[in-house]
Design a binder for these strands. Structure first.
Length: 462
RNA sequence: GGCCCCAUCGUCUAGUGGCCUAGGACGCCGGGCUUUCAUCCCGGCAACACGGGUUCGACUCCCGUUGGGGUCACCA
């Protein structure tokens, strides 16, 4: 009998650069089910490709996890009972299992001349690459010798004329003819495993129960299934989530949109909004809610209910969602966010009041700086003769105000507008450099009588 | 090109044989509120890719076509 096992999920990022939005998406869909069942969400670093390794990339992954609140239970920085969590530190393990495969006859040495390295196949043009691998040479005796020669690799043996079927929990059974599966390289000439060997060994050893990963892995899953069978291990549940898409429906990429999580962060998107938006891609809340927090998501998320259709990443809707979050923050919370995003905000007089006025006018935190720029310095505006007269009149009106208050200021402004037959945007332009923005009477009230009049004086006499 | 996956408004989606003259959200258009701009409220436009079946009845099931995507590395 299989004993009741707590759910264990993982993301397996490669430290090859910046944090990808797709990684965050995967993290969310792995984090939630683990949290819901009180299981474990693991981060395993897949650094088996030494040529693509980027120093510091691992820390960058943690930073977005911390920023978004999807904190892992086990990882290289949070050791659990299944370490090490960095594949480069598990080399001896992979060699042990590859030896087992060799002994069982499920893997073999293959001679691979260095001259063939780096050849990329072009399938559309039917390039014949069948001569790349020469296997009829005498194999070295040990893995150590193999590594030393640098021209030997170990491949897995794929049976001929069979069907390999596995169940994708989102799509159902998927079958591949074994002819479609190549004798995958398991151990590279440098002694490092390929993804395919490492992922199977590690998922098994780390007790991963649900493999939740991108759909790009579907076609290599048969290789993994074969390995599970060779090792006689239990096969975990597979959930292949849809890949996020560009506007042209191709897999989300740098060329077409923003894939770096840090871009969103720097543009003033809050993590709650990003997570909420991501949650809605491929999944929907049972009662069609659009705005919900992470706890709501954890409570209602159902892995089996993910759609298999690749959703387009829509920045416009994300932006709307971000605006909703900013608007629903309490004032103290919003203040906190603004200051951490834009530290200079602390130097602003009447900060609380400005935030209050800005709240419904911000789509991103970045907007606060723009909205309040005329408080930081006098805007430079070019004015017509008529506008100079308007400014002059307004100075007279404002000067006579005893009780400097926005409603009184507004009345004065209205009178001037009526006299000159102009509308509000003209005054906004004169005083803030933009025809739209924070309510003008309030702006002047906060700016103070002297400063307001000084600015108008400058305009009328320019 | 082989194989695999997918197919509801422009976009994200609800829909699991009759509740569908297809619902919601973003966006767009129009209106209301209004101190510009927003917010907020109301209304509107807009989709089941196509063709065959199965069934009393298909958006829902099956097959095909078309279209889109992925994959076919000593990258993950």
């Amino acid at each position: 009998m299989v004993k009741e096992q707590k759910i264990r999920t993982r993301i397996a990022p490669s430290p090859t650069g910046y944090p990808h939005i797709g990684t965050l998406y995967q993290a969310l869909f792995n984090f939630a089910p683990a949290k819901k069942e009180n299981g474990a969400f693991i981060v395993r670093i897949e650094d088996t490709d030494r040529t693509r390794f980027v120093e510091g990339a691992e820390e960058v992954i943690y930073s977005i996890l911390d920023w978004s609140g999807l904190t892992e239970n086990e990882s290289p920085r949070k050791l659990g009972a299944f370490g090490p969590y960095r594949q480069s530190e598990r080399l001896m393990l992979y060699r042990k299992y590859v030896t087992e495969l060799l002994d069982k006859g499920h893997a073999y040495y293959s001679y691979y001349p260095k001259a063939n390295a780096g050849i990329k196949k072009d399938y559309a043009k039917k390039v014949d690459t069948s001569q790349e691998v020469v296997t009829n040479q005498k194999p070295p005796i040990s893995i150590e010798e193999m590594i030393e020669s640098g021209e030997w690799i170990i491949r897995m043996k794929v049976p001929k004329n069979t069907q390999i079927t596995f169940k994708d929990e989102i799509r159902g059974d998927i079958t591949f003819a074994s002819e479609q599966v190549t004798d995958q390289v398991l151990l590279k000439s440098d002694g490092f495993p390929t993804y395919h060997l490492a992922v199977v060994v590690d998922d098994h050893l780390m007790g991963i129960t649900h493999v939740i990963r991108g759909e790009e892995w579907i076609s290599s899953t048969p290789k993994h299934i074969l390995l599970y069978k060779y090792f006689e291990w239990d096969i975990p549940l597979f959930y292949h989530t849809p890949d996020l898409r560009n506007k042209d429906k191709s897999k989300l990429s740098k060329r077409h949109g923003h894939t770096n999580v840090n871009w969103y962060r720097e543009e003033g998107y809050v993590p709650e909004a990003i997570l909420n938006y991501l949650a809605l891609l491929g999944w929907s809340h049972p009662n069609e809610k659009e705005i919900f927090d992470i706890n709501d998501f954890i409570e209602h998320f159902d892995l089996g209910n993910i759609r298999a259709v690749g959703p387009m990443f829509d920045l416009v809707k994300l932006t709307w969602m971000n605006q909703q979050y900013l608007q629903n923050f309490s004032l103290p919370e919003l203040k906190k966010r603004i200051i951490s995003f834009y530290p200079k905000a602390k130097e602003l007089k009447n900060l609380e009041k400005l935030i209050e006025l800005s709240q419904t006018r911000m789509e991103t935190l970045k907007d606060f700086e723009k909205l309040t720029s005329h408080f930081v310095k006098t805007p430079e505006v070019s004015v017509t003769e008529k506008e100079k007269l308007i400014a002059k009149d307004l100075v007279v009106k404002l000067n006579s105000i005893e009780n400097w208050d926005s409603t009184v200021i507004f009345t004065a402004m209205k009178e001037v507008m009526t006299t000159h037959g102009v509308k509000m945007p003209i005054l906004y332009q004169l005083l803030t450099g933009s025809p739209k923005g924070l309510p003008l009477p309030q702006s002047l009230e906060l700016l103070g009588k002297d400063e307001s009049i000084a600015r108008l004086d400058a305009i009328s006499t320019s």
